[in-house]
Amino acid sequence: MRRAGSFYEQVGGEDTFRRLVHAFYQGVRSDGPLRALYPEEELTAAEDRLRMFLEQYWGGPTTYGDTRGHPRLRMRHAPFHVDSDARDRWLTHMRAAVDSLDLAPMHEAVLWDYLERAAHSLVNRPG
């Protein structure tokens, strides 16, 4: 269920989040160290999960929660070596993806603030 007037709707809904996440994973595909965090997995599945998570977080469909339950971001990322280098690489590709959307400055700032805080919160290893 979508919330009327939600951030999700304000920025263009599903199309915007599909473009954001696809652009992000294009960067991941070309980044050896970051790509290594997905050793056995087809990135399409990861792309779908991130898109569904972000859509739900920002007021769009609840598909993520309906299929995967509570996000539990720190727990889901605990098995992966997320250090400052991985965080910075993630942020580099996500910054390029956000910039590709040409959002209104207010929307871009709100989205980026969340993504940056989330990336910092998932660091679970020194280095």
Rank of each mutant, 00 (worst) to 15 (best):
M1S: 09
R2K: 14
R2D: 02
R3I: 15
R3D: 05
G5C: 03
S6D: 10
S6P: 02
S6I: 03
F7D: 00
E9V: 05
Q10L: 11
Q10F: 03
V11M: 14
G13Q: 01
G13F: 00
E14A: 08
D15I: 01
T16D: 04
R18F: 05
R19P: 02
R19D: 13
H22W: 04
A23W: 01
Y25A: 06
Y25L: 05
Y25M: 08
G27Q: 04
V28Q: 05
V28A: 06
R29V: 12
S30D: 13
S30W: 09
P33E: 13
P33W: 07
P33R: 13
L34T: 06
L34P: 04
R35A: 14
A36S: 14
E40G: 10
E41V: 12
E41M: 15
E41Y: 05
L43G: 06
L43A: 05
L43P: 02
T44A: 12
A46Q: 15
A46T: 12
E47R: 06
E47Q: 14
D48I: 15
D48C: 10
L50I: 10
M52N: 15
M52R: 11
F53S: 00
F53H: 02
L54T: 05
E55I: 05
Y57L: 13
Y57D: 10
W58Y: 07
W58P: 00
G59Y: 02
G60V: 01
G60R: 02
G60I: 00
G60P: 02
P61D: 13
T62G: 15
T62Y: 09
T63E: 11
T63R: 12
Y64I: 09
D66V: 13
D66R: 13
D66Q: 15
H70D: 07
P71A: 00
M75T: 14
R76Q: 04
H77A: 15
P79F: 07
F80H: 15
V82R: 00
V82F: 01
V82A: 00
D83I: 02
D85Q: 13
D85G: 09
D85S: 11
D85Y: 08
D85T: 15
D88K: 10
W90M: 06
L91F: 01
L91K: 02
R95W: 07
A97Q: 08
A97I: 12
V98N: 02
V98H: 05
V98Y: 06
V98F: 03
S100L: 07
S100D: 14
S100P: 05
D102G: 11
L103E: 02
A104T: 01
P105L: 11
M106T: 11
H107K: 03
A109T: 11
A109V: 09
A109R: 07
V110C: 04
L111T: 01
L111G: 00
W112A: 05
D113P: 03
Y114M: 06
Y114S: 03
Y114C: 04
L115K: 01
L115Q: 10
L115W: 00
H120N: 08
H120I: 07
L122N: 11
L122E: 08
L122G: 03
L122F: 03
V123I: 13
N124G: 03
R125K: 08
P126L: 07
P126F: 06
G127L: 14
